[in-house]
Design a protein around this nucleic acid. Structure first.
Lengths: 195, 195
DNA sequence: TCATTTCTTGACCGCTTGGTCAAGTATGCG
DNA sequence: CGCATACTTGACCAAGCGGTCAAGAAATGA
């Protein structure tokens, strides 16, 4: 759906996105109906289909924008840093911060991963994130700072750990993002075992 | 739903469970209708509601049995092992093996985590798993084998990493479970950084 | 054999769903 | 002003949903 939107139109579209994000995260994507969204906003049903082709497209749009935003946050966090190990640490920190301030988006991305219909839309973003992390890992291996393990696996290990810690410690237990991030970094860099 | 089931009844119930597991995992829980399940099995609709109170109860039942089975697998793997670090390693291995042989269940558990309605049914099992892992960590800390970090956080870090690696490397890329498990153990124990 | 219990059928119900559309209103712009 | 374009309305639709139930078939057990 590519319409030429006026200022007003863009605001309306954003209203729909925001409201849908909240309802989807709270109530689930499938159980939330288009009718619920439009009546919640106090508008007619046609408004929804003026801005989005379908309910499915709406979610895909949400996912795309969310992943773009997350990536931008990560990029800004590591901008200008040369040391690959530090880049990894800062990336984890940025992800935690982003996840703390966008719990609904974090949850929607998790949901999308579990549904075949939406997995592709998310997989691409995850692969990009994994490739980014993998690049830092490879650099670290090349410079002798990081052990010679499969960079791809390390990257996904970081991603998985970060996502789980965000869900449990940030969203469920509401702990400070920087502390959780610091602990995650400590684990991922040095492991659990005393040497 | 607690019925006294004959042999035949138990088989029918299992048929429903198995078919639903496959459809739910493939097509999603919400998009899969009760009608689809019963016609797929070539039986009348009443059969479904003879064995399950509702579609929702069916999924909860699937989740409960899956988590029970996973836990049993983990318990068997570490049975008789004293060293806490080795118990953690074996637990990761057992989880990978289980996840490799039950990809649909792994996916359904992931889905349930993202839907408020089903999260409680899963949360309990996850907390048990985290507490189990946390106990080994605590023991390891007490015996001086494991660094003095938050055991709860370490436990969730292990869980998150394992789940993500299982999804990407076992279910998407079909790599051998024991190799992925070995790599995961290496990361979690010794970290990425050269020392 | 016959009564009891377990299991199966499938038409049926009220309701909601995602989506359409003809009609009308507001806005931007020359 | 006047016309084109952007936006909004809400009744309407076919299809599908989860769930019910009266009726009957099959197995069980005495």
């Amino acid at each position: 759906m590519n319409r030429r939107l006026t200022q007003r139109g863009q605001e309306r579209r954003q209203q729909l996105l925001d409201f849908a994000i909240n309802r989807f995260a709270e109530n689930g994507y499938h159980p939330t109906s288009v009718a619920e969204i439009v009546t919640g906003l106090g508008v007619g049903k046609g408004v929804f289909y003026w801005y989005f082709e379908s309910k499915e497209e709406l979610l895909v749009e949400i996912l795309k924008e969310a992943q773009l935003d997350l990536r931008r946050t990560q990029r800004e966090a590591i901008d200008g840093i040369d040391d690959p190990v530090e880049r990894i640490a800062l990336g984890i920190g940025a992800t935690m911060q982003w996840s703390a301030s966008h719990p609904q988006l974090h949850q929607l991305i998790s949901f999308a991963t579990t549904e075949e219909r939406f997995a592709p839309a998310v997989r691409k973003g995850q692969e990009i994130a994994a490739r980014d992390a993998g690049r830092h890992v490879r650099e670290g291996i090349a410079s002798g700072q990081i052990r010679d393990l499969d960079p791809d696996l390390l990257a996904h290990a970081i991603l998985g750990m970060t996502a789980q810690l965000a869900r449990v410690f940030l969203h469920e237990r509401h702990q400070p993002a920087d502390e959780v991030a610091a602990a995650a970094v400590a684990v991922v860099l040095d492991g659990m075992v005393v040497r």
